[in-house]
Design a binder for these strands. Structure first.
Lengths: 333, 333
DNA sequence: ACCAGTTGATAAAAGCTTTTAGCAAAAAAT
DNA sequence: ATTTTTTGCTAAAAGCTTTTATCAACTGGT
């Protein structure tokens, strides 16, 4: 009936079992101070035997390092946040650091609540991530006593910031088309007030020449359809290739082209942006696209955070991380 | 140069500023013990003024409740995990409880590492979530001293478990079709060894009659195409409606029907499963589908965890939470 | 005026670890 | 043989909070 809870072993248990003082046990386990090798091994063996694991709370209270960080995101959907979070964890887990994930839904009250809980728990730092780089956080993170890193979000110039290199990604896409001999390249993309859209469009113009203008619209399949309709209606030569600002747009474009009897990539080549697998692998043909390497982005943010919490210098300001090209079949085999 | 870090205020600071002892300050702030109302107000006012917030680590060390829990997931993609996590947080944040998110990628080593970090940090409980309900966790969570709750995953019979009610969801879908007058209903779904697929198929057979057999296949758009091809080739009457096991399959089905000149919903109605917005809103026409209410699922798991950590009784075993029907246009306006 | 009970506060212990300072014994140096 | 140094270990403090036990002062009853 009265099942006594299996109390966790403390360093006191180790000390007693090894017949030494608590301090010696601590020294032996942490390999600091002056300890007889024999004693050290004995203590370690016994600790291992009885399954001792130090209480991180007590340790943190003293060392002022909690080995936990907070990730604050405004993404409810998860497509961007989870790969990034996985990357962050990957960088941290080997160092015993865990990450609190706080989904704020972009609600300032919720964000404040989460932030307070994090600070109370003495997190060593905070990583802020967003669904869109050029969006201000729902709370002020600039006056905290702990380091803040921004991932897929832009913070103050003093904070380390990691975002995908949109220009480089666009270059990858357009250059791929050029390399394969496509010339008249059109760019169909999302909302013009997204910084990412601007950067990609700019690079596109530099590389592809600006004979054809950039078509800004929504970030949806529907806009992909609509854009193709516009292009066909205004007549003139068809483009040889289309660089789309997102995989969703690309999917709309591909479907619209097929509806009109045009073959991809024979008549028109298409390249997307995002490598959102559920879309990119299921278009007909599968979509060649740009991957923003979100996991790597998260990993880098995690590593930066690790350095910061150790007091090591970390270069402030924006670091743009390279995207990669994922070749499928929409630009020819 | 030597910027002194703004040390966090402790209860000691409050006590000193209020001219009382630490114990009195603690009593006043927590409203326990015997305290003169005047003193209590004074202490609270001063605490507020100097911005005192108790150190959760120290508190937890004593009370044995860390006000943090761990979420272990094997989902790297985030589609299921993030909405659920958001739901969990939503249930917990008002109680000052935060959640560590651990993405294991289904790697036992990684899972073990995460688990140890969580236990060291004295989490009050663990929620395990998966991308598929009938999959065993990469680590053994049955012998822990803390409560474990399963969400979108099946644990031991003694553990509270929350999963979507697949049968009810399927009923919702099929009944919707029947209510709208569709009779010959076909079911195209995913892999037969998924428990979810079996449950949905069973319900479908009960409701729609089993004249037409269930078509099991992959969980992909491609299979949706392929399945339509199979149906058309084998000839006979076309179904009046198709109940698809996932939105991805539904999308393939809709596209395949259109390719063959069949109109949705005029010639064939289609209903999906998942309410994965990027798909369901972009099919032509937009897809009527079943939403598994993942956020609510997470919220329920969070609430159960909350009760467990407080020692309140929580019903063990599987709780199937209702899905909802999201009507768009693929079954008529 | 004395005793019992109440009130409002406090000192100290507890929770678990790390770290500082110190002590006794052994080793090395004079 | 005595002093200095080194070695191996330990007691105690510190980190911040909550809680238990205690204490002094006051209230009210006889």
């Amino acid at each position: 009936m009265s099942e006594e809870p299996p109390r966790r072993r403390t360093i006191r248990d180790v000390a007693k079992a090894a017949g030494v003082s608590i301090s010696t046990a601590s020294n032996a386990l942490n390999g600091i101070g002056r300890t007889n090798p024999e004693t050290r091994e004995k203590v370690r063996r016994i600790a291992e035997q009885i399954g001792f694991r130090p209480n991180a709370l007590a340790r943190s209270l003293l060392t002022k390092r909690s080995h936990s960080i907070g990730i604050i995101t405004n993404d409810t959907y998860g497509r961007l946040t989870l790969p990034m979070t996985a990357g962050v964890s990957e960088a941290l887990v080997d160092h015993g650091v865990s990450a609190f994930l706080c989904a704020t839904n972009n609600d300032p009250r919720l964000a404040q609540l989460h932030l307070e809980a994090l600070l109370d728990k003495q997190v060593d730092g905070i990583i802020f991530t967003a669904t869109r780089a050029d969006l201000t956080p729902p709370i002020d993170l600039t006056r905290l006593a702990i380091p803040v890193v921004y991932a897929f979000a832009i913070g103050p110039p003093t904070a380390p910031t990691f975002i995908p290199d949109d220009a480089q990604g666009a270059r990858l896409a357009v250059q791929h088309l050029l390399d394969r001999g496509y010339r008249r390249i059109l760019h169909i993309t999302g909302l013009e007030d997204y910084l990412a859209a601007q950067l990609r469009a700019e690079t596109y113009r530099d590389l592809a020449g600006a004979e054809l203008d950039v078509l800004f619209g929504e970030w949806t399949e529907e806009w992909g359809h609509e854009a193709v309709r516009l292009v066909m209606e205004r007549g003139g030569d068809l483009p040889e290739a289309i660089f789309c600002g997102s995989d969703e747009i690309a999917r709309g474009v591909i479907d619209a082209l097929r509806d009109r009897g045009l073959k991809v990539p024979e008549d028109v080549a298409v390249v997307g942006f995002d490598n959102w697998r559920v879309i990119a692998t299921q278009t007909r043909p599968p979509l060649t696209t740009i991957d923003m390497e979100l996991k790597e982005l998260g990993r880098r943010a995690g590593l930066a955070m690790l350095d910061l919490t150790r007091g090591l210098p970390v270069e402030p300001g924006i670091t743009r991380l390279p995207c990669s090209l994922v070749v499928r079949r929409s630009c020819g085999a």
